[in-house]
Design a protein around this nucleic acid. Structure first.
Lengths: 349, 349
DNA sequence: TTGAAAGCGCTAACAA
DNA sequence: TTGTTAGCGCTTTCAA
């Protein structure tokens, strides 16, 4: 049942009466080969239906020509954009990509890391899970000098290239915008402080308050899972606060949207009673009413940058900047969910 | 710089003074080996930090132990669920999974198929791109007896295992529900009829109309890309119809949501002026106001079923049902966006 | 139950 | 520019 036999370079060599070394050179565009034989061999390969055997090549070269990507979740449009950017760069460089996702669980992240290690990927691009609290599972890569690039959810203390946005700035601007709109009491709904992204957004939030001479209150900080359900629960908690805040910074768009929906159901108006700012600029930010003010950043670019760093390292184009932290641009997009003052700016997609 | 040298079965064999054959047997849990040596070898492997070399194994076995997954888009929560289901089954069976996505372009789908073919995946699970109009790129797999399983977006005329939902039923029930709500003029916003899913949903729509003695009108059929922007454009078109339909069936939740948003912006009420039913039960269906009536189906299960079919085939557990079409359960979830009559059912997540 | 040995398909050092 | 040859690490047939 097994189709016809696979064609190998031996078959081509035999047919053309050359050595397999020559065939290999031709197929790999080596320079020490005449244009004539190269052409002849490529034609024969096509005629015979030759297909390249990666296993043999990898075995011989001790390289997999594959990079592993570890992400925390597939479902966000941000992640998807990043993957798109990574894919573009790796494909152009002739690398394959294996995607492993942890569903936000450290346990799965560890498994994925081990799996990719055993699969001998040449490099790793990773964003940490919600609850990852140590990076031991990445040590095997370090020990074997397999390059690691982290993006978005990174661990500051870990020595490696990192690609991030300025979450502090994002948090600061979001909060400051709410202050500009006249909010005095501003709450924040965010994720575990374990993750740098949430910690930084939080720092930006707090500093914006303090810089404006406003009080920072612990009880105005709500930390949860940042999923759909969390938004609803956060809404209940917020409405129990005294005073009820006039502004809330929710550090994720899905949660911000379900939060808005919930407080509206509870009889509050957005932005009149409570102004809301999100984070990410997902599609959902344009579906919710009122449309959501949010922090936009370019996931695709982030993926491109991360992959480019990694590939350059693999290609030996390493320079001192290799262990640097690269910051990708982000910006606040102002929409109706936060505009107390009645003046309305154009919404952006 | 290259860490320490890799440990191979030769190192283990030498240390324990046995043959590599024995080591291989022990590591693969062969039965023709004594419990004692097996244990000894496994311990040594652990001590030495042995890691399995897949390239050599695959080269030798002529199998990649990898299955390729070709999907049209990563960004939907449906796709993500399916991938989750596939991953669960393939991982349990010890297979790896390579994900390739086509961004809805046939051109990329062809490239992905070729790539996976050259990578010698043992099997393929695929859902077709928006505009794929022939399946020649899957013929190499057929020729080599590499099993193919299609899910969701399948091509009826192609001989292979298929895992789908009953899109006809979904379309029929959605439309019928609108009829029950008293709609006489019902429009449909859907995707290219090339794709079975949209064709079937459309057939269900039309038959529901005809069965209820209502007129089917060509000008009430809008076909587009079913993305965010499409919903806005569809809204403009719908409001130009004469008469303006009292019900619209939009065969995708994101588009349904942006459609609702747009017609509300144009001064119409949902469901009073226009009742809307979507398809997929995405998160977004609970964010849009009013909440969206939609067709729910279990993507995770679909992925599990598809992967199980494929793995069984690979394991030789094939039976006659192999080339069958498997239909996964789906159901209409009724929410406020379609309830003209004022009675309100509980919404479901 | 174990071992010897061949070979999966490819690349690259060395020789010609 | 081309050929010879020796492995890369593993599995498996055959023999012991």
């Amino acid at each position: 049942m097994e189709g016809k036999k696979e064609i190998t370079i031996y078959d081509i060599a035999r047919k053309l009466d050359v050595s397999t070394a020559t065939v290999s050179r031709a197929l790999n565009n080596s320079k020490s080969i005449s244009e004539k034989t190269r052409k002849k061999i490529n034609e024969a390969a096509r005629d015979l239906g030759y297909r390249h055997n990666n296993f043999a090549k990898n075995l011989r070269k001790q390289k997999s020509h594959t990079i592993g990507v570890i992400i925390h979740e597939l479902v966000s449009s941000f992640t998807t954009s990043v993957l798109g950017g990574i894919e573009k760069v790796t494909t152009e460089a002739g690398y394959d990509m294996i995607i492993a996702h942890s569903s936000e669980q450290m346990e799965k992240e560890v498994k994925n890391a081990n799996n990719l290690f055993h699969k001998r990927v040449d490099g790793i691009i990773a964003s940490l899970a919600f609850n990852t609290d140590n990076l031991d599972h990445f040590m095997p890569f370090v020990d074997k000098d397999i390059p690691l690039v982290f993006f978005d959810r990174v661990e500051d203390s870990f020595q490696s290239t990192k690609v991030i946005i300025d979450n502090y700035k994002g948090g600061y601007e979001a909060t400051n915008h709410l202050i500009q709109q006249g909010c005095k009491n501003i709450a924040i709904v965010t994720g575990p402080q374990l993750r740098n992204v949430y910690k930084r957004r939080f720092s930006g939030y707090r500093d914006a308050l303090l810089d404006a001479g406003l009080k920072f209150r612990e009880d105005f900080v709500i930390i949860n899972e940042l999923d759909y359900q969390s938004g609803i629960e956060a809404a209940k908690q917020i409405l129990k606060l005294n005073p009820i805040p006039e502004g809330v910074f929710v550090t994720n768009d899905l949660t911000a949207a379900s939060f808005i929906k919930a407080i509206k159901d509870m009889g509050k108006c957005v932005p009149e009673d409570i102004a809301v700012v999100g984070f990410n600029n997902d599609n959902i930010s344009l579906i919710i009413e009122p449309e959501l003010t949010t922090v936009n950043y370019n996931g695709f670019l982030m993926g491109e940058v991360a992959a480019t760093q990694l590939i350059n390292h693999l290609l030996g184009k390493t320079d001192v900047s290799q262990l640097s932290t690269i910051i990708v641009h982000s910006e606040l997009i102002i929409r109706k969910s936060s505009l107390k003052s009645g003046r309305r700016k154009q919404s952006t997609i």
